[in-house]
Nucleic acid binder design. Structure first.
Length: 394
RNA sequence: GGUGGGGUGGCCGAGUGGCUAAUGGCAGCAGACUGUAAAUCUGCCGGGCUACGCCCUACGAAGGUUCGAAUCCUUCCCCCACCA
């Protein structure tokens, strides 16, 4: 159920296959983010056809709405959303960072003031595990404490040590829940025609913290591995305000010690260039909201850099966003039309660019994998980065 | 013809003597966005300049009152409503 096979590597870059209860994930891979149980604006069919093998959901946001009780009653997140492939749920740890103004951290857990109705919600390592269990994701993430990229050594150490202590509690709760599941009680298949099946086991991945400080990162990794074994390892707390060279340095520092036979997931990253740079440093899995958020805001990635579709320059631009792209948007629509959709504020524009961006990142995973398998990743990645950076605006 | 209301920067629309080159919104132009409080947010938005300040031109038109007017007065032009 949780196998990872490494097929090839070139330098630090790796190509593998991850087997999960709901299917396989060929790596390196980008995982589109569906915080609220939907990859914003996109039909699951479109997400699938774009090549997504696994998507994310979010513990905190799904806990607020509709609540894990509703999702549990609806047969789990897969069945509720009709997404049939693997899913990973984030623990709510990132909201400790992103909702900094609305929460209070204690050793037991985090108190959030709901941005929806002002009610106070407490998330602890245990409740995060319980919620993710009810959601029924293939991969549950440990509840961690993310600090800003500029955080001092002291603050980063505090977050890192707390993440380790919380990891113990996550593991204990996760193990206890797994015992309950091992009876293999029959439930409906998550998608029509709802054949009876066995509740798939969920696996738990730990998260490395330590901010921008290499020594803390290594301590975090060592402390995490001591608590293993794990079926995968995540690196969190990057792309949260630190300079890119720092992220690269941290990845390089961790690469040697990370288990070679387990997938590595760089959380919340990234932009196209971050995927290529990350793969080059041994990362197998990525996720990022930028594809859909920037898409909704009219910003598209292309093989020749970024395109802001709202710009007047595209008023009569007959070209697709990216002539080399094989997405459904580029196959059919001109920049002029996409710009028009943004100008008039039609939802189709947001959808089409989101779809393009999602496909763009998924394709980077596919191309990188093919290059690694062909032992040409080094050449491919250097050429890719050169072209991407050649023109800032296509 | 009469009575009443009104004409403000591309559009809508505040402002009724100085702090007004003129609140807002829209449109326009540009930027940001990395485990989603985001179809959001930020900046610019009369013209010119040897610009953190100066000079033009501006609130229907012309004239007037005043140290000072988009704001008050006079005349004219135009729009709307109702009555003839």
């Amino acid at each position: 159920m949780f196998e990872f096979t490494l097929h090839a590597s070139e330098g630090a870059a790796r190509a593998g296959t991850l087997r999960l209860p709901h299917g396989e994930v060929l790596t390196p891979a980008f995982m589109p983010v569906g915080t609220y149980g939907t990859v914003r604006g996109l039909h699951p069919e479109e997400v699938e056809q774009a090549g997504a093998q696994i998507i994310l959901g979010n513990t905190y946001h799904l806990h607020l709405r509709p609540g894990e009780a509703v999702i549990g009653a609806m047969g789990g997140l897969h069945r509720f959303t009709s997404w049939r492939r693997p899913m990973l749920t984030d623990s709510g740890g990132f909201q400790v960072f992103s909702l900094a103004g609305l929460r209070k951290i204690g050793e037991d857990g985090v108190e959030f003031t709901s941005h929806i109705d002002g009610s106070v919600r407490t998330l602890t390592p245990e409740s995060s595990m319980d919620i993710q269990h009810a959601l029924g994701s293939d991969i549950a993430m440990a509840f961690d404490h993310v600090v800003p990229g500029q955080a001092s050594w002291e603050l980063a150490e505090e977050g890192m040590e707390r993440t380790l202590r919380w990891l113990d509690r996550c593991k204990a709760r996760h193990d206890a829940l797994a015992v309950g599941r091992d009876g293999g009680k029959a439930v409906d298949d998550p998608v029509p025609p709802f054949r009876p099946t066995t509740i798939p086991r969920q696996t738990l991945w730990p998260i490395i913290q330590g901010g921008s400080h290499d020594d803390l990162r290594m301590r975090s990794l060592e402390g995490t591995l001591e608590r293993g074994p794990w079926t995968g390892t995540a690196i969190g707390g990057l792309s949260v305000g630190e300079p890119k060279p720092v992220m690269h340095r941290v990845l390089e520092a961790l690469a040697e010690t990370l288990p070679r036979d387990r997938p590595r997931y760089l959380m919340g990253v990234g932009f196209p260039e971050d995927l290529v740079e990350g793969i080059a440093r041994g990362v197998d899995l990525f996720d990022c909201v930028a594809a859909t958020r920037n898409g909704r805001h009219g910003s598209a990635w292309t093989s020749a850099g970024r395109v802001n579709i709202r710009k007047a320059a595209h008023r009569t631009d007959e070209r697709p966003l990216d002539a080399e792209c094989d997405c459904a948007t580029c196959a059919r629509f001109s920049r002029a039309y996409l710009r028009h959709l943004f100008v008039v504020g039609d939802i189709l524009g947001l959808r089409l660019i989101s779809l393009h961006n999602v496909r763009f990142l998924l394709r980077i995973g596919e191309l990188a994998r093919a290059a690694i398998l062909a032992r040409s990743f080094d050449r491919w990645s250097r050429e890719w980065l050169r072209r991407y950076h050649a023109k800032e605006e296509a």
